[in-house]
């Protein structure tokens, strides 16, 4: 019984997270300016990481959490690099 409830709520959470990813993707495709696209990309990274954590709860596999951590760090670095590029036209001053 409890297993069924958890499985269904994980499924529901994953549906919500994939909707959120779709919205972020829409902002990347549509976004009028470059900064909107970067904002969408950053949100997409976070949503993907949360999706991996949901998979991790479902399967109890540590690899998902490590991948989530990796995505968080790499997403941070790439977003910072893109924002710096917007500001100055070059990444490293």
């Amino acid at each position: 019984m409890t297993e069924l409830a958890i499985l269904w709520s994980i499924l529901l959470a994953q549906v919500m997270l994939s909707l959120a990813m779709a919205f972020a993707l829409y902002r990347i495709v549509k976004g009028p300016r470059a900064q909107d696209r970067i904002l969408g990309l950053d949100t997409l990274y976070i949503n993907a990481m949360l999706m991996l954590i949901a998979f991790g709860i479902r399967t109890a596999n540590t690899i998902y959490f490590e991948t989530g951590l990796l995505i968080a760090v790499i997403g941070f670095v790439s977003s910072i690099a893109l924002a710096k590029f917007l500001m100055r036209g070059e990444v490293i001053e």
Partner: peptide, 16 residues
């Protein structure tokens, strides 16, 4: 889990 996913969804709805 559901509350967290709902908050994330609200954030992305705000994005569009």
């Amino acid at each position: 889990l559901l509350l967290g996913a709902a908050m994330t969804l609200i954030g992305s709805i705000g994005l569009i």
